[in-house]
Design a binder for these strands. Structure first.
Lengths: 139, 139
DNA sequence: CACCAATTGCGACAGATTCGCAGTTGAAAC
DNA sequence: GTTTCAACTGCGAATCTGTCGCAATTGGTG
């Protein structure tokens, strides 16, 4: 994996004012080598393979720190608890207002259509999808 | 909230072969009255207000059942563990192959653009977003 | 109104993640 | 190089959502 922004993860970590500790070196190496989307347990396993003794708590903390500083992306993050709504007649997506927690529904037939096209081009059939856009009010 | 599909939740529940029990009556009433996206704790609170004694386990089970039968939608469901990737230079979205668990990245400038347009129309500024499309291979 | 599988309440359990704390260690300042 | 000290780590306990086993209850069909 090449360095995004033409800076290595290590460089970006230091740039963010974070310490380059031994466990972090290992974890960054693992992240850099990964071309998939590992979960914490898998990251821990790979880190352990390089350097036994790294605690899973450290992996959790490091991933949180890196995510806060924008060095990595966390997917499928359980944004708190699951939330429900009576099934609407028509699918819609959501804006989540980060300042208020408010949820606003919207729908775009255009987006729906493009999704179909791309999925088909990849040989997939869509079962479902979710599009959550995290926003804040424009000043 | 009006009844989707021109059938009430109650009707659809019976239609699905599910029993209309006392706790479910209350929960359906709560769902029907909700115009937001409550979580289980909130649903339980509202249900308790109408009829004390309803267990939170029942709310969990009922929501699962309703979701399985398509009467409600579950958002932000913690699909197992969180997964990570080194922050890519460019944002991309994900296909999740439900049969294999495999994750495939894709990107559509068109979708990105439409999102911007819609957000702006709502008076929002996008902080981030996630688009996960759950798919299966086309036969 | 009898029957019985579906459903419930309860508390125990589970899996993922966080936290408190004492000990360690980068790296900045001598 | 030392010194210094807040950042960081490892550990196990704790927390937080959500699920489960089980005995008791109950829709709703015959």
């Amino acid at each position: 994996m090449p360095q995004p922004d033409s800076l290595s993860l290590t460089q970006r970590l230091k740039q963010a004012g974070l310490r380059l500790t031994a466990p972090r070196k290992v974890i960054l190496r693992v992240l850099d080598a990964a071309d998939d989307h590992p979960d914490v347990e898998e990251l821990h396993r790979r880190a352990q393979a390089l350097e036994p003794g790294i605690s899973i708590a450290t992996v959790y903390r490091t991933m949180n720190t890196l995510a806060e500083h924008g060095l990595i992306e966390r997917h499928s993050f359980a944004a708190g608890r699951a939330r429900y709504e009576a099934q609407p007649a028509e699918h819609h997506d959501h804006f989540i207002n980060l300042e208020t927690g408010e949820v606003v529904e919207f729908r775009s037939d255009e987006i729906e259509r493009i999704q179909q096209d791309i999925a088909r081009a990849h040989g997939f059939e869509i079962v479902s999808h979710r599009l959550d856009i995290f926003v804040r009010p424009r000043r």
